[in-house]
Nucleic acid binder design. Sequence first.
DNA 1: GCTCGCGATGAATCACAAC
DNA 2: CGTTGTGATTCATCGCGAG
Lengths: 377, 377
Amino acid sequence: MVVSRRGASARAPRTKFESAPSSHIVIGDCVAELSKLQAGSVDLVFADPPYNLQLKGDLKRPDESHVDAVNDDWDKFSSFAAYDDFTRAWLLACRRVMKPSATLWVIGSYHNIFRVGAIMQDLGFWLLNDIVWRKSNPMPNFRGRRFTNAHETMIWAARDEKAKGYTFNYEALKASNEDVQARSDWLIPLCTGEERLKDGDGKKVHPTQKPEQLLARVLLSSSKPGDLVIDPFNGTGTTGAVAKRLGRSYIGFERDKAYAAAAEARIAAIEPLPEATLAPFMTAREAPRVAFSELIERGMIVPGARLVDAKKRHGALVRADGAIMLGDKVGSIHRIGAVAQGSGACNGWTFWHVETKSGLRLIDELRAEIRSEMAAG
Amino acid sequence: MVVSRRGASARAPRTKFESAPSSHIVIGDCVAELSKLQAGSVDLVFADPPYNLQLKGDLKRPDESHVDAVNDDWDKFSSFAAYDDFTRAWLLACRRVMKPSATLWVIGSYHNIFRVGAIMQDLGFWLLNDIVWRKSNPMPNFRGRRFTNAHETMIWAARDEKAKGYTFNYEALKASNEDVQARSDWLIPLCTGEERLKDGDGKKVHPTQKPEQLLARVLLSSSKPGDLVIDPFNGTGTTGAVAKRLGRSYIGFERDKAYAAAAEARIAAIEPLPEATLAPFMTAREAPRVAFSELIERGMIVPGARLVDAKKRHGALVRADGAIMLGDKVGSIHRIGAVAQGSGACNGWTFWHVETKSGLRLIDELRAEIRSEMAAG
DNA sequence: GCTCGCGATGAATCACAAC
DNA sequence: CGTTGTGATTCATCGCGAG
């Protein structure tokens, strides 16, 4: 049973899989079904709720062809108040099952996203970013009465202001982005062609299927392999498909049996990527702390040795307790480095060197040796 | 006095200036001061309200009373509520002075824009677009815990759902954009360098000065020369500066005398662009109506002549009364064109041709001749 | 086999004046 | 107020069939 298995996995260390990631779709209303899930068991929520488009008449293209709009019952609400009630209910249901460190994504358009965002703030969610999905191939504005609606908005939020330790794979995103920080605007094409689920008649299964590329970026940025990802509005299961491919566990909630069936088949056909391609690389932030004293304990540096900067303009004496001394000043490698530079702060690891027969050696290299031994052990 | 002059201008034809465009800054709270402005006198509102950057400390209610900063959940709600009260107050004050056809822009970040947008919907504003200002040179996220916040959001809205006839210079925007529709995402750099207002010590006058390029696109897309533009949060007067340069009248509201003084000087130094560079070009939508019967009255087409489509698959007979006849069906050039094509609608002007010695001639060309005579006369 | 042209299509709040 | 008639309006992409 998926639910209880997840409860156990939630307490397991994240970097190792207790069991293979699983995928599951629950048929039913997400608010009712989420109440059966263990509180604080979920790592990431991605939600693509109805947008409440409020479309009135019929729209035709300049060539007189009909625009196939979203006119499904699930997108109809009697009023803004009714939509707000609906929104509060599913957000609260998600919040209950989120781990303290979990984050939540919601996608929407200008029809609904402002209401959703305001309610999230009212409920105590802590907004981390709003992300703009820029569509490379949006539908034009056929009547020329407005700007082409060429984007949708996602809100990324922590469970509350005090929630710390949420996952954000900053270094991986930066490395995959020409070594510059990932921005809040993402250029991604619509879901079309082969990727778009069609029924037997060649008609689209769902009117609002999201591109896998979008979900991949969401999951890669804010979750880890083995995490439990849920989607309260499963639809065609894009979140679940990407979660499985990326080695995350998944639970989707869907009221419509036809959507759920299509999603089941889709997810079943997904082949997860090899674990090696998914393993998070050790980031500077996550690397284990190493005390300078450990270099002394391990005999890599002896008390009384001299530390110098790259140009040998400053020299400091290593004490037995792991502090260092420059003139009459005693302190950490960082503090004394700052004193030497006359600056407010200094990373001692990348400032100080030890003298060896073959020349100067940065103490950060000695720390790296210790870390690789720790990883191997 | 600016206010009364504007009241008159509001009833004047838009394409001619009743008087030279004027600029004015009112020192005081926008809610109080807007109540003195004539209702229904404003063409465009641009608002850059305080962003409510997490409600630390300094927030004031619309009545100027101070909101105590407390750090518990109850206060978080009360602070959001106070921001909402403030937002409702200035939005309603702006709404009162808007013409029925006026539109309103608000800019904000994820800290406040969701609340503002939801309140706009609750007050009855009708959202037309949300526009993303993508910053080409955003400030990086120094802590590496989030995506670089590389955009801000603008909401563009009509006064209410039924409001028709708002200004949207679709054709001009398209022409200036490689002949494709303008999209909802705009790439514009931050306001820096020469444009950024500095005080005597070289410090920036205002923390959130917006780039003139952003305001120029706002005013060029949704206002006409001679329109009255207001900005309830004048700040350094970017809206006023761009309005003056583009031949729009302007009233800004500002509580801070130092900001107002800087803005006054800035706007005074602006040289408006020559009228010829601003004149709106005639669009097909705005061209004068020409009745098909006028072509007959002028002798360009004689009763009994045959109209045909480009491929001569359909032929219709011209009647003396300006209707045409296909088989036993009589009606306008549009209605009969639709019948011929078997479609629901047809633009008869661009469907029917008359046969001349030199070949087929589109009747739209005959209409163009009449229009150019009308323009000359 | 490859190119070219044509048709289809995507979360859409898509007129307005005259009568 | 509602109804009717005129007439203005689309971009990127994919699949398929013709050549």
